[in-house]
Write a protein that binds this DNA or RNA. Structure first.
Lengths: 213, 213
DNA sequence: GTCTATAGAGGGATAGAC
DNA sequence: GTCTATCCCTCTATAGAC
């Protein structure tokens, strides 16, 4: 059998790492488990990546990049809070299917006490952050009735944190995906989108009161 | 040396488990590491708890119970959204100090693929959930201008998810605790609390439009 | 570049003395 | 109830053949 190419081996290992993380969890991650699923020798993990941690790090970033690209057009189209919630719901379903958010959550947990993995997780989170900040800027930036209320970057960070936390907490519930959460957010979005001139004036007045206090 | 009591050994093991989880992370959890820090024989982990996982599970629930009790009075006093945000900030600081939210996050990650641990994590989350639902009910329930807008339980679940996600994502950032997030929430809370009659009417009108659509 | 084999450490869990 | 000692397994990482 001719030796496979280096790129092919690395690709298979990265794909296998995601698969193992997805199906068996972070506790089951090992060079043996990953290389076996990849169909390559265990030693290649260290030859190509140096350590298991580094393989996991690269796998998380690579997988996240692919998932973000998948939703890029949808992010570009969202133009209201209702759109944002609908998008969040679609992304939640799609990413739960692919297991990517769960992967991020599990890797994040390890990254709490692993500086090397923390660097990679920051990169992965930044990949999601970029399109989310773009949407948030459209909804909260100049020209919107919420301009100056909340910083788009801060809003995006809160959204992402909630997303990760939702995925982790939801998995330990017995009743599966909690549709009520998204329904509640839909109501909030409808209110925010539907605020007429009167509502906006009241909002502006409240903000003025707060600023001059 | 006289043998210590069973209760004392169990107590020490539980405390040591939390300590190891807090300082070295979930990846370093082992019967050896825990028993060494507890100053007892390694075999006692299995004698008293049956398995390392079960010890971790009980430790998480016990530790969470203690932390929740610590904040109970503050929860009882919160009567506005501003109070809620201020409370969240205090809890965030206190729990970061104690590392309890980080512990929950890491245990939750493992619980994604460990049914036994998932049961314990549901119990731990429910301990936080109870006082949070109580506060949420006061803010969103009958008599409030938001009555019927969002279910208190759903709101509480979202809050908790955001809290866990915030702790996990914040830890991998280079700039530490992001105060801007809480400042942003303070603004939102002030708006919600400060909505006068006009704002509430506008809100009610928006909700009516949505319901009859 | 890929493979097999293995060293060396650490882990879960149990047996049996006290 | 607690301890020490141990079995057996899995893990990371490396060495060396091809």
């Amino acid at each position: 059998m001719p030796p496979k190419s280096a790129e092919e081996s690395k690709r298979r290992l990265v794909a296998a790492a995601i698969e193992v993380l997805r199906t068996d969890g972070i506790a089951a991650m090992s060079a043996r488990a990953i290389s076996q699923r990849a169909g390559v020798a265990q030693g290649l993990v260290f030859y190509h990546f140096g350590s298991v941690t580094e393989l996991i790090a690269q796998a998380c970033v690579t997988a996240t990049q692919a998932r973000v690209d998948l939703h890029r057009e949808q992010f570009a189209e969202a133009a209201s809070f209702a759109d944002l919630v609908a998008l969040a719901r679609e992304v939640q379903v799609a990413e739960r299917e692919a297991g990517n958010v769960s992967i991020l959550g599990q890797a994040l947990a390890v990254a709490q006490t692993d500086a090397e993995l923390a660097v990679a997780m920051r990169q992965a989170l930044d990949l999601w952050r970029e399109p989310i900040v773009a949407v948030s800027s459209r909804l909260l930036g100049a020209g919107s009735p919420f301009s100056g209320l909340i910083d788009a970057e801060t809003f995006a960070d809160l959204l992402m944190a909630a997303f990760v936390g939702f995925e982790l907490t939801d998995a330990v519930r017995e009743d599966g995906v909690d549709d009520r959460s998204f329904e509640a957010l839909e109501v909030v979005a409808a209110v925010l989108d539907g605020l007429g001139p009167v509502g906006r004036r009241a909002l502006a007045a409240t903000l003025r009161r707060r600023r001059t206090r």
